[in-house]
Amino acid sequence: MTQPPFDSPFDLPPELAIDTDVARRVIAGFIRGQLEQAGFERVVLGLSGGIDSGLVAYLVAEAIGAERLLAVMLPYRSSSPASRADAEAVVTDLGCASDVVDITPMVDGYFGDPERPGAAGPDGPGRGEATALQRGNFAARMRMAVLYDRSVTWSGLVVGTGNKTESLIGYTTIFGDSACAFNPIGDLYKSQVRQLAVAVGVPSVIVNKAPSADLWPGQTDEAEGGFSYPVLDRLLFWRIDKRRSIEEMVALGFTTEMVERVDRMVAGAEFKRQVPPIAKLGPRTAGVDYLYPRRRPGSART
């Protein structure tokens, strides 16, 4: 058996197709449950103009009503104007509250720019010399800082928008875009995100554009990673969800080289998916042998 030819980056591998009606029921209940147990009624979301945050905006609106959602657009000076326009289209379509926070002064304030040094100092990483990856990670953490500030002023929980594919391969910024109070789509592969986005009515211009972290002009995930999402999703699905061996993966049409490369990415990103370990010293240690649900009687905000 050979790898099916996924001509389009938007093909849905058949084995990944989900029942979107059930997914919407589960996710709506999940969102309401998280809020209720935490004592919150509202949600704050970082809206980039991409499909992940776009889908989450629609799912939140479906679960609790658009009037209880604040979408914050957080552009950097190099962010694509098209992304902003797409984000605006979501806000207009849903009728949710929105806000724009230009994070350029925050990012450049640290790195500096060609004219003056930033907070990192004259010998710091700034002065225009920081790599795009460095700036991208810093920008993701500045967005996180803004969202958590808006969490207080809007009285809403920060909803996560990371998908399963990027989490597994580590295509996330730790304490940046992966930071959230809860995540309704973190167990959906990118292809499934697309399937669900179509089902909930995310504007087609967002569904049909090439996925991009928008860290620099013209960047796309698939060009940067050297893979297409349908192929990667299918690989991860069989390897991780269905526990297939390398021999079995080869029989499914993947090369040993690609499987081993993805294995390394997944193993290398394990630290991003877990709570940091605490040195075990006392009788009861959070996460080790002090194990409580995140929410229980008395833990809801009153």
């Binding site: 084995e15 197709a17 989900i18 029942d19 009606d21 059930v22 997914a23």
Partner: peptide, 13 residues
């Protein structure tokens, strides 16, 4: 706990 939303499942779950 509900899991496995594969579209091929009877009743979607």
């Amino acid at each position: 706990p509900g899991r496995d939303l594969a579209a091929t499942n009877e009743v979607g779950l």
